[in-house]
Design a protein around this nucleic acid. Structure first.
Length: 335
DNA sequence: AGAATTTGACCTTT
DNA sequence: AAAGGTCAAATTCT
């Protein structure tokens, strides 16, 4: 791994610190205006907490170098979905195996990875998920413990343009109307380079996939539950092509649910709350692909192996799961 | 005919 | 060894 450059470090800290301050102010404001938004308040607290966590991680987990033994470690999100009760009870193994703490060891793949939960109509098929990209199915597998099979898709332009983006779609066990979509790799195809997901989704929802009927909702698009995570990013990411685009105009949709930001999060996840979203100030130090708007709508749901968490935040991304290899000092992500 | 999907075999990772 | 992921021939769709 590498360390942050001074510049990135500074930006990161500034952003976090500022974000925290803002959240604080919001909290105060809420108290004064006798707002009945109790949930909002809770949310704010959680945001604050998340900032603290992030700061801590930066302080001890990343900045300190390779060994983040003490539990502070930037997520090595193995399985993005294991949240749906998989019978696999082999207890959270994979503790802190130094998967890359070896100095010279080079990881083989450098692919950003994140998951998204999309709710579709009860009867809608799995393909009922148009994200604006052109996908080609190349496999399907029955997953142990999962009632629904997992579909494997890769960008249609893989051969023609060498676009390595892939995604896996699986229907949620608990809620069949929710599709868990795990993306891996950025689009390097013309479609991905020219159109950002947001544009594609908002303006041309049927670029590639059939515009399946997504819930007979009124005009409001279905909420998409996000769980953005990034893993296996190598310092010398080869083909990563950030999707530069503006964050969506967050259409707030808060769904207070179970706890958020528990202490366990430090175990394998790092949460990147609101500051990651629309504020340009904060975006300056964020990987551009994180702005890819895969959640113009916005129910952010994070589910980790240890604890399923649901966050409802007015931002497209509620949480990130970064691999300890994330190239924080890579200029491509931190322009 | 060409493109996309299906599906069992094969390869990879844990 | 087994679960997950990918390949590729067969099949279906355009």
């Amino acid at each position: 791994m590498e360390n942050f450059s001074d510049f990135d470090m500074k930006n990161l800290f500034n952003g976090l610190t500022e974000g925290r301050e803002l959240a604080k102010q919001l909290q105060i404001h809420l108290n004064v205006s006798s707002s009945s938004h109790k949930t909002s308040e809770v949310l704010v607290e959680k945001i604050l907490n998340s900032y603290d966590q992030a700061l801590s991680i930066l302080k001890y987990g990343v900045a300190c170098g390779e060994t983040q033994q003490g539990g502070l470690r930037i997520g090595t999100s193995d399985s993005p979905r294991s949240n749906s009760g998989s019978p696999r009870s082999d207890g959270s193994d994979h503790e802190f195996k130094d998967q890359d703490t070896k100095e010279g060891s080079k990881k083989r793949k450098a692919m950003p990875r994140w998951t998204q939960k999309v709710q579709v109509a009860p009867g809608a098929g799995v393909e009922a998920h148009a994200d604006g990209y052109s996908w080609r199915k190349y496999g399907q597998k029955d997953i142990l413990g999962a009632t629904y099979p997992r579909g494997y898709y890769r960008c249609t332009h893989r051969r023609s343009q060498g676009c390595l983006a892939t995604k896996q779609v699986q229907r949620s066990d608990e809620d069949p109307t929710i599709l868990e979509v795990a993306y891996k790799g950025m689009h390097t195809c013309s479609l991905g380079a020219k159109k950002d997901p947001k544009t594609a989704m908002d303006q041309e929802p049927n670029i590639a996939e059939k515009p399946q009927q997504i819930l007979p909702q009124s005009h409001q698009s279905q909420p998409e539950l996000l769980d953005f995570q990034t893993t296996d990013l190598d310092t010398k990411n080869e083909t990563l092509q950030p999707l530069n685009n503006n964050p969506s105009s967050s259409s707030s949709r808060i769904i207070p649910e179970n706890d958020v930001f528990s202490a366990e999060m430090m175990d394998t996840n790092i949460y990147y709350p609101s500051f990651m979203s629309s504020e340009p100030n904060y975006l300056t130090f964020l990987p551009s692909f994180m702005n890819g708007d895969y959640g113009s709508s916005s129910n952010i749901v994070h589910t980790s192996e240890s604890n399923a968490q649901t966050v409802g935040i007015d931002y497209p991304f509620g949480q990130l799961d970064l691999d300890s290899n994330f190239p924080f000092d890579n200029p491509r992500y931190f322009p």
